Lab assay of single mutants.
Amino acid sequence: MIIKINGKYYKIKKIEKNPNGKYTITTENGKKYEFKNVKIFSEEELK
């Protein structure tokens, strides 16, 4: 799965839903981001 952050695309390693309704997304390079609204892309959609 792929996520778009600030115009760049990252591969997703893990998605966790937090009790506060936000999502914590861990990218393949180990960085964590927290979002309220998340749009996930499949690799097929990006081709």
Rank of each mutant, 00 (worst) to 15 (best):
M1T: 06
M1E: 04
M1K: 07
M1F: 14
I2R: 08
I2D: 02
I3D: 00
I3A: 08
I3Y: 02
I3M: 07
I3L: 08
I3S: 01
I3C: 09
K4V: 14
K4A: 10
K4C: 15
K4D: 04
K4N: 10
I5S: 02
I5V: 11
I5M: 05
I5L: 07
N6S: 09
N6P: 00
N6E: 08
N6C: 14
N6H: 12
G7I: 02
G7S: 05
G7K: 04
G7W: 02
G7M: 04
G7R: 04
G7A: 03
K8E: 07
K8F: 09
K8P: 00
K8R: 13
K8M: 12
Y9W: 14
Y9P: 03
Y9F: 12
Y10M: 12
Y10A: 03
Y10P: 00
Y10V: 10
Y10C: 08
Y10N: 02
K11N: 06
K11S: 05
K11M: 06
K11T: 06
K11C: 07
K11R: 14
K11D: 02
I12D: 00
I12W: 01
I12Y: 01
I12L: 04
I12N: 00
I12R: 00
K13Q: 12
K13L: 15
K13S: 11
K13I: 14
K13P: 01
K14S: 15
K14Y: 10
K14L: 12
K14T: 14
K14C: 11
K14H: 15
I15Q: 01
I15V: 09
I15N: 00
I15M: 07
E16F: 08
E16L: 06
E16R: 06
K17T: 05
K17E: 05
K17Y: 10
K17D: 02
K17S: 05
N18A: 12
N18E: 09
N18L: 13
N18D: 09
N18C: 13
N18P: 02
N18W: 08
P19V: 12
P19E: 12
P19A: 12
P19F: 06
N20L: 05
N20T: 06
N20R: 07
N20W: 05
N20Q: 06
N20Y: 06
N20V: 03
N20G: 07
N20E: 10
G21V: 00
G21R: 02
G21L: 02
G21N: 04
G21Q: 02
G21D: 03
G21K: 02
G21P: 00
G21T: 01
K22Q: 11
K22T: 15
K22M: 14
K22Y: 15
K22N: 14
K22V: 14
K22L: 15
Y23M: 06
Y23H: 03
Y23I: 12
Y23T: 05
Y23K: 01
Y23V: 08
Y23Q: 02
T24A: 05
T24G: 02
T24Y: 09
T24L: 13
T24W: 08
T24S: 07
I25R: 00
I25Y: 03
I25E: 00
I25S: 00
I25V: 14
I25Q: 00
T26I: 11
T26L: 07
T26M: 06
T26R: 01
T26E: 10
T27H: 02
T27I: 13
T27V: 12
T27D: 06
T27W: 05
T27E: 01
T27Q: 01
T27A: 09
E28A: 13
E28G: 05
E28H: 13
E28Y: 13
E28N: 08
E28K: 07
E28T: 13
E28C: 15
E28I: 14
N29Y: 08
N29R: 05
N29P: 01
N29K: 06
N29M: 06
N29T: 10
N29F: 08
N29C: 13
N29W: 06
G30S: 02
G30R: 01
G30A: 01
G30V: 00
G30D: 06
G30Q: 01
G30N: 05
K31R: 12
K31N: 10
K31Q: 12
K31P: 03
K31A: 10
K31D: 12
K31C: 15
K31S: 09
K31M: 13
K31Y: 09
K32P: 01
K32I: 15
K32R: 13
K32A: 04
K32M: 13
K32S: 09
K32V: 15
K32H: 07
Y33Q: 01
Y33A: 02
Y33N: 01
Y33F: 13
E34N: 08
E34I: 15
E34R: 08
E34Q: 12
E34C: 12
E34M: 10
E34A: 05
F35Y: 08
F35T: 08
F35W: 05
F35A: 10
F35S: 05
F35E: 02
F35V: 15
K36C: 14
K36D: 15
K36S: 13
K36F: 13
K36P: 09
K36A: 14
K36W: 15
K36T: 14
K36E: 13
N37G: 06
N37V: 12
N37H: 15
N37L: 07
N37E: 11
N37T: 14
N37R: 10
N37F: 14
V38D: 05
V38E: 04
V38G: 10
V38A: 08
V38K: 04
V38L: 13
V38F: 09
V38Y: 04
V38C: 15
V38W: 03
K39I: 12
K39R: 13
K39G: 07
K39Y: 11
I40H: 06
I40F: 12
I40A: 05
I40S: 04
I40L: 10
I40Y: 08
I40Q: 05
I40K: 04
F41V: 13
F41A: 07
F41P: 06
F41R: 05
F41M: 10
F41L: 11
F41S: 05
S42C: 15
S42L: 14
S42P: 07
S42N: 11
S42R: 09
S42T: 13
E43S: 04
E43A: 03
E43H: 04
E43T: 03
E43W: 05
E43G: 03
E43Q: 05
E43M: 02
E44D: 13
E44F: 02
E44K: 06
E44R: 03
E44Q: 10
E45S: 12
E45R: 04
E45D: 12
E45H: 07
E45I: 12
E45F: 07
L46G: 07
L46W: 08
L46Q: 08
L46P: 09
K47G: 13
K47R: 14
K47Y: 03
K47V: 13
K47I: 14
K47Q: 14
K47W: 02
K47D: 12
K47P: 09
